[in-house]
Design a protein around this nucleic acid. Structure first.
Length: 591
RNA sequence: GGCCCCGUAGCUCAGGGGAUAGAGCGACCGCCUCCUAAGCGGUAGGUCGCAGGUUCGAAUCCUGCCGGGGCCGCCA
């Protein structure tokens, strides 16, 4: 997937101006105005906090003052001389503690609009990732029941992060790890057996510790269809393995359906069970053993409140402390069987050997205590070459009318993904769940997210996109050609009003925002940016109320209309691309 | 006891080395006889938990403390 657009010329005005600044600094080195060997990495070109400071600002003089042994002002003045008049820079002036404020000619912003139209939804794509192979493992819900709200946020976050990294030039694999090898699938099988007995007309015994959910009833019926009553009086040993497979497959089908409902599509499903019997666990452990990282020993009892039944036992341990963990971790239980950690070691080793340059795991925040040992595993088994990033997803608190919401029509105990999507819709669910950092708790109010007002960011952004579509439709009704090809040829020099240029400036920030968000693995930044862009579009739109010359459609003046509509369309294209990363469908009309 | 996350406006949250710390809600003040008001503009509101430190510069990085949450052997 990556690289498929690499032939396209990419427009990133901030990157271009930064390149110009760096080139000027290089010239200053050549001219003896700066010492050689100074690192320019910290030189940044960014939008200024205050629009009165100009279009762009660079901190070059301040960052270089110390390594260059010159006062900021001296550097700034020499740099100013070299920047004036180049690359559309009309003025460069020193300000504040040593900022260099740059102003650009209107043509620069008009060029951004033209690029957005030419590149369409690829405007803002970056080669930041340079085609690096990244594996994003997310959801990985146990195949023992339907997905609930917590999984939903992880699914949305993981999918959006994957899209974001793809957009920023990484080769991304979306992966789901099926925990189908542990004790919980035995419990699932036993629970399904009771539902099977129920389907055969007997009274099910849903004992304590079994899964009580209704979702197993159809599994029981399917089992009856398959086995008749042949399993009824058989001992567990006769049916456990078969029912495990059967029920797990049914649960995974249900989970895939849930994910599809949200619009999430995995590239790879990996099975824990498939690791057993292939020697992969033993192989990974042996590899660690070869590094001297596996030993037999006992752990210190945990500090603080001791478990009541604590007793010291010898276990097979992984020396994770050699790779940054706080204590060593057991890979075998005292009875000699693997702990749940062992297959995770093998699974992460498998990901490493598949040649990924980077691994990302997305886990619930309650797994925070697991992070260090996973990093230790990957560090050891990749010889420190493959970074593992673990993103923890905080809880979602559900509300309805401001009141905490806990009911579920389906399972009785938790709110399922399906419940949420059926009430709020996939687009709204996705957008709202991405309006918060992954490590901050999220409030999700069923009423607020569906509200049609500017208080609701989903609606607000969608409305901005719909307005653009509306303008284009209306242009057609007025006999003004407004297809992308025509708009791409529009005379953008007609865009000169401050309000128009302000909108173009916001559009110009998109490629930069993509890189910042991708670098920080923070898709929520896309959501916030889209809100700001929508706000700028609405603001500009509204100015047309007072000043008719700012309206997109100018009666009887096709050329001016097309220039203005081109601006609107450029904003629409960016909203569409941004929503695409978030996995949200742009609205054509609000209805 | 240890580890991780959080603490920014009345509320919900952005910002995570740079200029006068932002947005939405709420409050207050304006804007539709008409073409683009399910909207827009403006005002008020802050010792960025506290104390040290690093730096030319700290809400941002480091240390300690306070407050809130999560996790902490043979469960996944």
């Amino acid at each position: 997937m990556p690289g498929r657009r690499q032939g396209l010329m990419k427009m990133n005005l901030f990157a271009e101006i930064r390149a110009l600044v760096v080139a000027s600094l290089d010239e200053m080195v050549a001219a003896g105005d700066l010492p050689s060997g100074v690192d320019f990495a910290a030189v940044a070109v960014e939008p200024p906090r205050d629009a009165a400071h100009g279009d762009m600002a660079t901190n070059a003089a301040m960052v270089l003052a110390k390594p260059a042994g010159q006062p900021p002002r001296a550097i700034a003045e020499k740099l100013t001389a070299r920047l004036q008049g180049r690359g559309g820079i009309t003025s460069a002036e020193v300000a504040g503690p040593g900022f260099l404020n740059l102003r650009l000619q209107p043509e620069s912003w008009q060029g951004v609009v033209r690029s957005a139209l030419a590149e369409g939804r690829d405007f803002g794509r970056s080669d930041l990732g340079r085609g690096r192979k990244v594996n994003v493992e997310f959801v990985s819900a146990n195949p023992t029941g339907p997905m609930h709200v917590g999984h939903t946020r992880g699914a949305v976050f993981g999918d959006a992060l994957a899209s974001l990294l793809d957009f920023a030039g990484h080769e991304v694999t979306r992966e789901y790890y099926i925990n189908d090898g542990g004790a919980q699938v035995d419990v699932l099988a036993r629970s399904a057996y009771e539902r099977y007995r129920e389907a055969c007309g007997l009274e099910p015994e849903i004992r304590e510790g079994l899964y009580p959910g209704d979702y197993l009833i159809p599994v029981g019926e399917a089992l009856k269809d398959k086995y008749g009553d042949s399993l009824l009086d058989k001992p567990e040993a006769d049916w456990l393995a078969d029912l495990r497979d059967f029920a797990t497959a049914a649960m995974m089908q249900m989970i895939r359906d849930d994910l599809a409902l949200l619009g999430v599509k995995m590239d790879v499903y990996s099975s824990e069970k498939a690791l057993y019997g292939t020697g992969k666990i033993e192989g990974a452990i042996d590899r660690l053993r070869g590094m001297g990282l596996i030993y037999e020993g006992t752990l210190e009892p945990p500090k603080g409140k001791l478990p009541e039944d604590w007793e010291e036992r010898e276990q097979t341990l992984f020396r994770s402390t050699a790779h940054g963990d706080d204590v060593d971790r057991p890979v075998k239980k005292s009875d000699g069987s693997w702990t749940y950690f062992a297959p995770d070691i093998a699974y992460h080793f498998d990901k490493v050997t598949r040649g990924f340059d980077q691994l990302i795991d997305i886990l619930g925040a309650d797994h925070g205590g697991y992070v260090k040992r996973l990093k230790a595993v990957v560090s050891a088994l990749s010889d420190g070459k493959v970074p593992l990033e673990v993103k923890l997803i905080q809880l979602v608190k559900l509300f309805k009318n401001g009141e905490p919401f806990k009911m579920s029509k389906r399972a009785g105990t938790f709110v399922t993904l399906r419940d949420v999507v059926e009430q709020a819709g996939a687009d709204v669910t996705r957008f709202v769940m991405l309006t918060r950092k992954n490590d901050a708790p999220l409030d999700f109010d069923f009423d607020k997210v569906l509200e049609q007002s500017k208080d609701n960011p989903v609606w607000y952004v969608q409305y901005a996109h719909a307005r653009v579509s509306s303008v284009i439709r209306k242009a057609g009704e007025a006999g003004i050609a407004a297809d992308d090809a025509t708009l791409g040829q529009a005379d953008l020099a007609k865009l000169s009003h401050d309000s128009e240029l302000a909108l173009a400036r916001k559009i110009a920030e998109w490629p930069r925002l993509v890189e910042i968000a991708a670098r920080g693995q923070e898709p929520h930044r896309v959501a916030f940016y889209l809100y700001e862009l929508a706000s700028d579009l609405h603001a500009h739109w509204n100015r047309g109320n007072d000043d008719t010359s700012l309206r997109f459609i100018q009666d009887g003046d096709a050329a001016t209309s097309q220039a203005k509509i081109a601006l609107a369309r450029a904003a629409g294209v960016v909203i569409s691309a941004g929503l695409g990363i978030l996995g949200v469908t742009p609205a054509e009309e609000m209805r």
